[in-house]
Design a protein around this nucleic acid. Structure first.
Lengths: 344, 344
DNA sequence: CTGAAAGCGCTTACAG
DNA sequence: CTGAAAGCGCTTACAG
């Protein structure tokens, strides 16, 4: 059962393959009558132009690659699954498809070769990376090689290539968090940092510090600790930190993100600390789970749908060679005041 | 900056394009020395064969389409996000990529055309559908047209095409649930059904009934209700059902799946019913969230990773034209006894 | 407005 | 073991 091709359609419609192609690609110089006739034959015979033929002529694939890094942190996270949905939706709205890949890291030679291959084989018109280290060399290499690359949470300052497109968090969410706690009367504030190789974690760290210094608060070593970006790492960091200063606790904890804050909840529960009675907790992200947990988590919330829609659609703009595409956009967070922080 | 092609490699290596192709495709009749020389040139020049050229010669794409149905029920569900991961992993282990599409339904003409197009354009070698109605005509059409189609939770009994591959739940999970409650002494058992157009919901319904009848239990209309497959629909169904028989409550509720069970929890909380003191609840699925919720949910658990790995790898087997591929596999659930059911 | 022809990048009988 | 040639299914200058 041979699949019908443009030759068959041409013959059946009594035109040349050129004309069939013109109809398919909506060339203006085809009389309406011819167009209708050809379209009818196409429909009747269930003809679908083969992508491979089209691509060989330099046409676009209409596919973007989605590269998810650090599987462990996203596996069971509803926030990631909605990221994913947002990207598919945004691509779909532009008539693009999404090829999804999950990678543990971008450092193994095997993974690097894999990503290069996906780009170079002509499978995708561009790619989006979620969760890479800031300044990852492969991403830079691809962008400088002219590939269209979108990245969530990436430092573009050192890269000139216009084919690198980023969507980032504002750089001062940490300040908002500390300022809010300060306003509630907190002076004894602990900080759990994330993964410092990620732009957002680094920026949050820096902006916590800025606000602490601005308010003249003491940066106590036993109240500062490195965590990670997962709930588990937040739990471990909080437990370690709180146990080390049990007689002299902070009154509030800034968690690098909401998942880490959930980990802080776990640690507090285990140590018998009530939130917010004994200790206040503030996150950053606006994870939907934060509204369901007890007590509901106060956080700096972001509109992830907008972030990913913007990123995806700018990547597609770049693929379609539009001009004046903003290379990096930083999104603003807003305080979502729930019940995990109290006045002191 | 022209991309290097097989001609360039041939010239640089002092061989013909035929030989370059033979090296790339691991033909046996190439002397090791030649192979090495060609490979070296390929690496040095960062040559990647264009997929479109290869496909035009009938080679495989090494891509499978993943069609997620009923977006609403999967959007924020960690179970779905792990389904997804399992499929990508299983495909990746076989060197296949996954093109992901999300669709509300398979009934809109627009969606039907979209799916047909993805298959027919030659983008994918086969596809996997998650969450379609049992007996969906499009899936039947594709399979009978010779496309390789894998489906999760699908009735294959009326379809002869060997290119249709299914992974299903065992048909008697409902019996396990009711039998367990019976063993705990429950005689007043309520049932919340799911979406009867899905094979699993229908089978669970039937097997609840079977067990109820076998034990001689009364099927009371006010204790039977239709729900859906989401937490929200479970909440609504449970609330409606419980409110309608407040003076004469069942002692246990069988929820069509774990998400529905979570909805039952919500309804019970709202109505002031304690689980399991006032009413026992049992789910089906083995959702990880069930272990975290209070009280931890007793359920019939499935190994989703195995289900999706099996489905994906059988689809790839079919793509690669292997023989004796099991067309439908039914997976067995095991009782996970937690704290939501008590003895009466 | 339209067709014949060239060409995109590959693979694979075929012939040697 | 290897190359020249045909061909996969399309699009697009080009010429009319």
């Amino acid at each position: 059962m041979k699949r019908v091709n443009s030759n068959d359609i041409a013959r059946l419609a009594g035109v040349s393959r050129s004309t069939v192609s013109r109809v398919i690609n909506n060339y203006p110089n085809v009389p309406e009558e011819t167009r209708q006739r050809v379209m009818k034959i196409i429909r009747e015979n269930h003809y679908y132009p083969q992508l491979s033929g089209q691509m060989l002529n330099g046409m676009r694939n209409k596919t973007i690659g989605l590269f998810w890094l650090s599987r462990s942190s996203i596996a069971l996270d509803s926030l990631s699954s909605s990221y994913f949905m947002n990207i598919i939706d945004a691509a779909s709205a532009r008539d693009y498809l999404v090829l999804s890949c999950v990678l543990d890291n971008l450092t193994d030679e095997k993974n690097i070769r894999f990503v290069r291959k996906v780009f170079m084989e002509g499978r995708i018109d561009g790619g989006i990376f979620i969760g890479p280290n800031s300044n990852d060399p492969l991403i830079t290499e691809l962008a400088e090689g002219g590939e269209i690359v979108g990245v969530f949470d990436f430092d573009t300052s050192s890269i000139q290539s216009t084919s690198l497109i980023a969507a980032n968090f504002e750089s001062d969410s940490g300040e908002h968090a500390v300022d809010y706690l300060y306003k509630l009367g907190h002076r004894r504030i602990a900080i759990i940092d994330g993964d410092m190789s990620r732009l957002s974690s680094f920026q949050r760290h820096e902006s916590y510090m800025r606000s602490m210094l601005r308010h003249g608060l003491t940066l106590r070593n036993d109240w500062l600790t490195y965590g990670g970006i997962t709930q588990k790492s937040g739990y471990q960091a909080a437990k370690r930190m709180l146990e080390s200063c049990m007689g002299d606790l902070p009154t509030a904890i800034c968690a690098n993100n909401d998942a880490v804050a959930f980990g802080v909840y776990d640690a507090c529960r285990e140590l018998g600390l009530r939130i917010p009675e004994d200790i206040s907790v503030i996150g950053i992200d606006g994870h939907s789970h934060g509204a369901e947990i007890q007590p509901p988590l106060t956080t700096i919330g972001f509109k992830f749908r907008s972030i990913f829609t913007s990123l995806t659609s700018r990547v597609i703009d770049a693929i379609e060679e539009q001009s004046d595409i903003p290379q990096a956009e930083a999104f603003t967070g807003v305080l979502i005041e729930r019940a995990s922080c109290r006045e002191v």
